[in-house]
């Protein structure tokens, strides 16, 4: 068992809107609402606590609007939380609260420690650059300054993600959906991130393509022991990849546990509904 947590989220909170005195009572899983009916404020994440351990895959499930993508964006440092902490344990054991980083520090941390794969490739890739350029960007940000070596590393990453290195200079628009997800994965892995964030990566793909992408992620996890945070509304995807799973509803975590336990012995009424509604 690997020692300590790598990332620890403490009482993280994010809302969109002005807020009012009764907001909290009128939203949350018991009310079945995220949006306050009085002032219209959306409470995307409320009192979210979780720990991510080195080398594990943690699943986050919940229906659309449950706050799981907002949570992921905050951990990716792309969205600033209203309150709470995101602690990260550096390789030297030092703890850093990522919510206190300024823009510049946050971007640097993002470039060196985090990788992300989005459901929609346009969000993760620059469609005007070549596929190789998109992967190389991460290397360039990590101060790789030798064109030849960048090309070699980019080809390696394409091989690893089962893309043909011959297509390094092709435009992303000539790639299929499953291939674009693999380009995103190659790009995310380029700078050896410690945490890979996956936001509905297989949603919208054909079932067989979905299986290939999942198998790729699984093998990367086995060989590189990379820590992953997997957001999905598809319980099957989470079952295949994540050992532990968190269930979110209306901005709150309603249940957390071993993935098979969540799926076969769900405790919370909402989780029981979610599991029983799965195909």
């Amino acid at each position: 068992m690997s020692e300590q947590w790598l990332l620890r989220v403490e009482q993280l909170e994010k809302h969109f809107g002005p807020g009012c005195p009764v907001c909290r009572q009128l939203t949350g899983p018991t009310t079945g609402r995220s949006r306050c009916p009085r002032c219209g404020t959306v409470w995307a994440c409320v009192d979210v606590n979780l720990q991510l351990h080195a080398g594990e895959v943690l699943g986050i499930v919940g229906e659309s609007g449950s706050g799981k993508s907002t949570l992921l964006q905050m951990i990716y440092l792309a969205l600033r939380p209203d309150s709470g902490h995101i602690w990260y344990r550096e390789s030297d054991g030092q703890l850093r609260d990522l919510t206190t980083l300024n823009r510049y520090e946050a971007r640097l941390f993002q470039n060196t420690h985090l990788g992300i794969v989005y459901q929609r490739p346009e969000l993760g890739l620059n469609m005007r650059f070549s596929v190789g350029g998109n992967v190389a960007e991460k290397l360039l940000l990590a101060e790789w300054r030798h064109f030849g070596r960048i090309r070699v590393r980019t080809s390696e990453l394409m091989n690893k993600t089962e893309l043909l290195p011959e297509r390094i200079d092709d435009e992303p628009t000539t790639f299929s959906g499953g291939m674009l997800q693999r380009v995103q994965i190659a790009r995310a892995l380029a700078s050896h991130p410690t945490i890979l964030l996956l936001d509905e990566v297989t949603s919208g793909l054909d079932v067989s393509v979905q299986a290939r992408v999942l198998d790729l992620l699984r093998r990367i996890q086995w060989t590189d022991r990379i820590t992953m945070l997997l957001v999905s509304h598809d319980l099957g995807v989470v079952r295949q990849l994540a050992r532990r799973t968190i269930v979110m509803k209306n901005g709150h975590i309603v249940e957390a546990g071993l993935t098979d336990q969540i799926l076969e012995d769900p405790q919370h009424p909402y989780t029981q509904l979610l599991v029983s509604s799965a195909l």
Partner: peptide
């Protein structure tokens, strides 16, 4: 402006990279 404030110059470097390609 945000890119400058974050020293997020990856895109510019890719532009140089693509120029060589």
């Amino acid at each position: 402006t945000i890119m400058h404030s974050e020293a997020d110059y990856g895109k510019m470097w890719v532009y140089m990279y693509e120029s060589i390609v």
